[in-house]
Design a protein around this nucleic acid. Sequence first.
DNA 1: GCACGGAATGACAGCGCTGTCAATGATCGC
DNA 2: GCGATCATTGACAGCGCTGTCATTCCGTGC
Lengths: 344, 344
Amino acid sequence: MTQRGNDSASGRRARGRTTLRQVAGRAGVSEITVSRVMRGSPLVAPALAGRVRRVAAELGYVPNRLAGTLAGHASTQIAVILPALSNIVFAEVLKGLETGLEARGYHPILGISNYDAEHEADLIRSLLGWQPAGLVIATAGLTPQSRAMLTDAALPIVEIMDSDIDPIDMSVGISHRGAGAAMARHLVARGYRDIAFIGHDLSRDHRARARFAGLRAGLGRAGRALAPARLRLCPSSVALGCDMTRQILARHRPQVICFANDDMAIGGVFACIGAGLAIPRDIAVTGFNRLDIGQAMPAPLTTIDTRRHEIGRLAARHLIARLEGDDPPSHSDVGFVVIPGATS
Amino acid sequence: MTQRGNDSASGRRARGRTTLRQVAGRAGVSEITVSRVMRGSPLVAPALAGRVRRVAAELGYVPNRLAGTLAGHASTQIAVILPALSNIVFAEVLKGLETGLEARGYHPILGISNYDAEHEADLIRSLLGWQPAGLVIATAGLTPQSRAMLTDAALPIVEIMDSDIDPIDMSVGISHRGAGAAMARHLVARGYRDIAFIGHDLSRDHRARARFAGLRAGLGRAGRALAPARLRLCPSSVALGCDMTRQILARHRPQVICFANDDMAIGGVFACIGAGLAIPRDIAVTGFNRLDIGQAMPAPLTTIDTRRHEIGRLAARHLIARLEGDDPPSHSDVGFVVIPGATS
DNA sequence: GCACGGAATGACAGCGCTGTCAATGATCGC
DNA sequence: GCGATCATTGACAGCGCTGTCATTCCGTGC
């Protein structure tokens, strides 16, 4: 652990990483042969391949994927752009994606748009600069510019979460508008009339907005009205759901409160319990997403399963299929599932 | 769609992306000048720079970062390896990291080890192949091989979450053993004697194991014993906490149950409520991590804030500092905070 | 009017690897 | 025994960009 030349005081930058050439020199073969061995080509005689592998291991050789990709036109990086990570939903989608990609040797490069379409455009530009083999995106609302970049880039793209779209290339998701409508049918079937809605900042989250629109339209078709929605211009959270529920209860007790998602709904349940109300006898509550925690509550939450794990899995699968020359469907609706629960 | 090579039916691979040369040709300047303009070099005359920028925009030119990095030795990718993403804790750390990195033009390449040290080693190897500028890792238990690769790689490395380690390069975290001991002091101060512990698979999660060891040791020092721990060899979850709590309650009611983390503790709270027990009168409950949801419950959970957001932020900050030639501390303990709550 | 210094631009080599095709032996059929 | 064939191996030219000089063109001061 002495000088070695690298480890330049502050930088600790790696100059002097072992290269193909060094392995080749030490093994007494040409660079291309080492390259073939490292990529498992059957063109190299087994004995030679063994020797080369031994030398490579000895030298701790790690192939430079940058150079390899530049020369060979075959990146194994996949750009992944999500609107947030504070909500467990996207973390689970990302988990599903990472697992599916990693299993086939692909690596995600991550960007978080914060539900900001402009920032999303910047992310698209900079991630495309890495020449990824493909791109998976849960849109924050593609700008025309973003759309143009993606179209021009001509690489496999999966737009995830929403199936009510006309995808640039492929889509995997559910119908959020349909999910809202399904919740409306559920509420109508249960006979509720005085229905309130609590949500976070829907102006940025267009999928939550679609659910809300579907809910309102569905209720309208059944002749029920939705009380004016209560929205707070901040990200969704348990605490927010709790707080806003208390506010509503302070002036009026609706028959049911629909929350924009499970996080908020769980906060709502806590607020109702705190107010001494029995659920669903005194007041009903519904959420969206089917978080595990909502189902573990003493009274499992009425909600809609968005099958996000399946979305991540399928997105990875379709992307890889396309990369391997297959022709996966350009439009996949994984279908949501209404979970009746015990809170409505 | 004639020859052009690109958009080959299935592949949709981009051959024919605009290159520096094309921009240079169209603008009537040399490649290097375009390169300078794209990187904002002051060496180019403003008028010329403007013209070049216009041409680049017209052609939708996106610099190829692979080539740039290969030629210039300055990647802006940062390898990030985490043990899981199912738990919101790591998702939040990742969010903090991404934000900090993105703001300075760096992009995370993600790997999830699933608490598997062997897989972690594979991830390290393959991510290092991208010649990242730095690496952030929440260890799943570095194998000697992993350690060697990281040492040899000679790039800035931040080991996050745990501060009770001798870092390869830098560390940012808290003392998990200390946190366990702090919880022990809290319990002793409250006068509890009959203390149970419920956890998930600690064999793989060495930080949870350290907390447990700290708790047990702390209680031991105070002359209290911990009932034999109940562990289930599966990942932690709300449902698991709920289930295991029911099992314990079926045969005996301890004064307090310590859970390996908040998720499990929340499940425990639900189980106790379901069993008609009042918290903390009939039974106390403690968690770990200080999840928002635990604090939003009618009785805020007694827990320990692990300051994970701060960990992510600081890890990004120190990494970037190092990359920019500064000399950040090699060892940062962000400190945990005991949150007394109302469940103990 | 002229050498000089600085600003602006370019030529060139090469980062580490892979695609392509050529070269080398070894093997084979007749 | 000899050309054809196959299995191996290598030479070479780039992928698209940037570091490092070299070059050109001014305005300056004397």
